[in-house]
Amino acid sequence: MQPQQEVSAWRPRVAGVVEVFHARFTAHAYPMHVHDAWTLLIVDDGAIRYDLDRHRRGTPGDTVSLLPPQVPHNGSAATPHGFRKRVVYLDTTVLDARFIGAAVDGPDLADPVLRRRVGQLHRVLSAPGDEFEAESRLALIGDRLRTLLRPRLQRAGATAARPGAGLGSGAGLGSGTGLARSLRELLDERAAVGLSLEEAAGLLQAHPAHLVRAFSAAFGIAPHQYLVSRRVSLARRLLLDGRPAAEVAVEAGFYDQSHFTRHFKRVVGTTPGRYARSSASR
């Protein structure tokens, strides 16, 4: 029997929402990757196990998982029959970067009020025309998230300001951290146009092997995985804009259509064509 897969992705006309992504997977496993936005995740069937900031996490019961932007994570089914999930990706106007450390420390929120509100938001987002209601429900969700996360900011040691809290920080992780952050900035700038490791080493005046080790140690993800993540994130935005997959492959920095499809499917769980068609059907 072939593994079952269902994917639907779209960008609603709701301020603060980058993307809505509904999926059912039985066998897909996400590699380590990052997102530019907050990932607000609920699982309707099955369960997901994932690693975030070098800690094993999961989605037990009726939790809501909040994965911060720029913090590497992976994911796979925790049950034999896979999982069904609904995700809404939110920009930092909904929840700002102060809460990244707090979310890293406890991404799985067992809060019935939040779970109900997120479910209501997805119901509204699935029916175009009720954007005002969606914005209202999103405002309540943002307020609830801040209420749940704020106590962590007040703990001794200021969790949110803890050095090394994921990819968004980096300070205090060792002598190679400054170099790692410089490489990250360079990869961000050159994600689409690309650069070689030798070129990066020359620009940063460091040995290539030292660059790779410093980046991986500081951020928990290899430089090439980070670069692919940034390219896939750009590709998702372009596909949701209605751009043809062949154009997106080139503009997002992939070598050709085959290269694009292979990496996109590994990170997203479906091909660029199916992803684009699911958006167009909306």
Rank of each mutant, 00 (worst) to 15 (best):
D53N: 12
G75M: 04
D130M: 06
I42P: 15
S278G: 03
A110P: 14
A47Y: 00
A158T: 12
H207K: 14
A27K: 12
G164I: 04
P68F: 02
N74Q: 05
F264Y: 07
L41E: 04
V20R: 00
S8L: 14
A180S: 04
Q5C: 10
D51P: 13
V232M: 15
D143E: 09
A209E: 10
A217R: 12
D143A: 04
G170Q: 02
D130S: 10
A103T: 09
V124E: 12
A249C: 07
V71N: 07
V87S: 07
P223S: 03
A161T: 01
L121I: 11
G46Q: 00
S281G: 01
L67Q: 08
E189H: 05
E133A: 06
I48P: 15
N74P: 15
R236D: 02
L227P: 04
L140Y: 05
E198D: 13
F25N: 14
V88N: 00
L239C: 11
L179P: 15
R150I: 12
I100N: 13
A77D: 06
A102V: 09
G170H: 01
D91I: 05
R98E: 08
R274T: 11
P128C: 00
A180F: 07
V268C: 08
D45V: 00
P107G: 06
M1N: 06
Y255N: 12
P163M: 02
H28P: 15
P68W: 01
Q205W: 03
G82A: 01
L204D: 11
V267P: 15
